[in-house]
Amino acid sequence: MTRKSSTTTRPRRWGMVIDLNRCIGCQGCAVSCKIKNNLPEGLWWNRVLTVGGDEIDVVGGDVEHPSISFLPLACQHCAEPACLPVCPTGATYKREDGIVGIHSEDCIGCRSCIQACPYGVRVFNLREPERATSHALGSIAVTSGVRGTVEKCDFCVDRIDAGALPICIESCPARARFVGDLNDPDSEVSRLIQETGAVQLQPEMGTDPSVYYIPVQHRSPRQTGMDFIANEPAAYQQREITEMLAPR
């Protein structure tokens, strides 16, 4: 889409802002993406990483200072994508509106793009896809799970082109995600970036990602909903264990 915005002559550049203060790590975006794009087992275009503990949904820090937040991670749809120039076939492409996609029928599976991508968001179909259901789910416009090819988040281009929101945004119960035109200074995403100091991942790579994150401002237990754990760790743990062991 190359619609000119009302306040700028630059073409539209789709972008996303994710408020990490709002993300509750429910994995709703990851699961809805997986279903909508009919992704086979083991492949995720969109993941929600836990920042804090060593495992998913595990709190980090110590007992007195627990810390946890979440990092939803998918293709950053960079303005200068590192994956683009390394693709020998032209399978990886960038649209005029900034969305980076893959023509899976042209991918030879050399994985140069995976090597080049600083964000680790491209996935490789090593073997024949296996799915939990015997029938396809999600959008018929999406090709996924082609053995021997690389794939990744396509910004729900089928939905975007049809005027709908990407599925990860629509499914987010915490309303942590925002989408819009980065080239339009009046858009919600531009305003959020300006007002909240949202940042890009690894800007030093020079890829100019189109996904911005509003960093967690205060990692206090109260904000993460764990003030009770912080204040009464022993009592909390005891109560939890008691409840677990209590006869029902």
Partner: peptide, 22 residues
Amino acid sequence: LDLGRPERVLKALRRPDRSWIA
């Protein structure tokens, strides 16, 4: 042989304008 889709190898010749593999 290392390619995910070896049968498509000739497609690797397509983009010498930008890719060193090509």
